[in-house]
Amino acid sequence: MTAAPVEISHRSITVNGLRTHVAEAGSGPLVVLLHGWPESWYAWRHQLPALAAAGYHAVAPDQRGYGGTDVPERVEDYTIVHLVDDVAALIEALGERQAVVVGHDWGAIVAWNTAQMRPERVRGVAALSIPHRWAEPTGSLPPVAGMRAAFGEDFYIVHFQRPGVADADLARDPAALFRRMLGYTGPAWTGMLSPGGGLLDSLPEPDVLPDWLTERDIAAFAAEFERSGFTGGLNWYRNMDRNWELSAGWRETPVAAPALFVVGDRDGSYASPEARELIEGRSAAVPRLHGALVLPDCGHWTQQERPAEVNAALIDFLRSLEGGRAAGEPASG
């Protein structure tokens, strides 16, 4: 008999003072799935049922400023401390003491920082696409000034710093934005925009969508941002210098939890020194690395592009934390 498909349910709960939308499935040990930019819970549509079927309670929130979650007005309400506190508060609101925290893109940054700043809440951490301590400043300049000096005003993170500019550009046509961003299949994106232009005009319209992406997916993402706008997510970038200051006390603290890293070889972060250290198993900042999976011919959107391989890697990692047993399976003897 074929098992019934696992359904994803939705609700809103109060987390760190914010009305927070979560999508969830299953029961068992808690796994929190943190999306990146510009995404939402929907980025985990393939992982929620797979993790639930494997015996876990998988929960994907819309993080602050996104989708069905509240959008604070102040830029300074989106610091890394706020984002980490949101994860810790979510775990508590779900009635748990700890969780395995999985993140993609910006969600990976939040996951790494949660493991550092709130280690008592994290049983394990899995990061997709972005390695720990990625793109940290190497000189005396703070992060944004360093990027401006290295790449100029047309580097996307520098461009995002101007209040209202990228916000309006991205909101012009959300469906076109997601079709171009998610549907891009060229070489690893450098982050450079057309001179004087915005992100929307800097990416080509794809001739055809990749096999993993549908017009329904594009419409789902576009609908989320037509509701929330783009300012909340952009405010995460506008706190990068502030985050560098706030995280100073943890900067040299290794990630104590077991960790997994997954990256596509067409992702721009793949060639970074931080990713190479993880792939080669020599990262002093992540001493308990369970493994590093490189997905060949895969871009940035790992869990959407290659869901079967990502799901298998996540479940293997989760079971390693349970002593090799499936969740809920009793120990022998």
Rank of each mutant, 00 (worst) to 15 (best):
R74V: 02
A166D: 10
S129I: 00
W41L: 07
R325F: 03
Y56S: 05
E322M: 01
A175N: 01
H10W: 00
G67R: 02
G164F: 06
L94P: 13
A53N: 08
G186A: 12
G281Y: 11
E96Y: 07
E277Q: 13
G124C: 10
V255P: 05
G186K: 08
P206M: 15
R306D: 10
V75S: 03
G107L: 13
R97G: 14
W212D: 02
D154R: 12
A219R: 10
G28M: 13
A275M: 04
A223L: 04
A220Y: 04
A248C: 02
G198H: 05
P119A: 14
H290W: 04
V100Q: 09
W41C: 08
L213I: 07
T138Q: 15
H46D: 15
V59I: 11
D169W: 14
R133G: 04
G196R: 03
V101Y: 11
S40F: 12
V31F: 02
E92F: 02
A43T: 08
L246C: 10
A248P: 03
L128W: 05
N243F: 13
A308F: 04
P163S: 08
G191V: 13
R11N: 01
G328K: 04
R179Q: 07
P38D: 03
A93T: 07
G197N: 04
P204T: 13
A284G: 04
A60R: 06
A220W: 03
R266L: 14
V87W: 03
Q98C: 07
V22R: 08
P49K: 09
L314V: 13
V75I: 15
P49F: 13
Q161L: 02
M240R: 13
V110N: 12
P38K: 01
L209C: 01
D167Q: 15
Q63M: 15
G324A: 02
V262D: 07
E329W: 11
P61S: 00
M192E: 12
L182C: 00
R123T: 14
Q47M: 06
I13R: 10
S27Q: 05
V294K: 01
R251N: 08
S320N: 01
S202Q: 01
I8H: 05
T231Q: 09
R325L: 14
I80M: 15
R266K: 14
W244F: 14
A54C: 07
P206N: 15
T2S: 14
W112T: 09
P273N: 00
R162M: 06
A93G: 00
L30N: 06
R121W: 03
A52N: 11
A53F: 10
R123E: 10
H300Y: 06
R97S: 15
H10R: 14
G268V: 13
T2C: 09
G68S: 12
A115M: 04
R11Y: 06
H10Y: 06
M1S: 13
D70Q: 06
F151K: 11
R121I: 05
R179D: 07
F317V: 11
F155W: 15
P72D: 12
C298I: 07
Y56T: 12
A271Q: 10
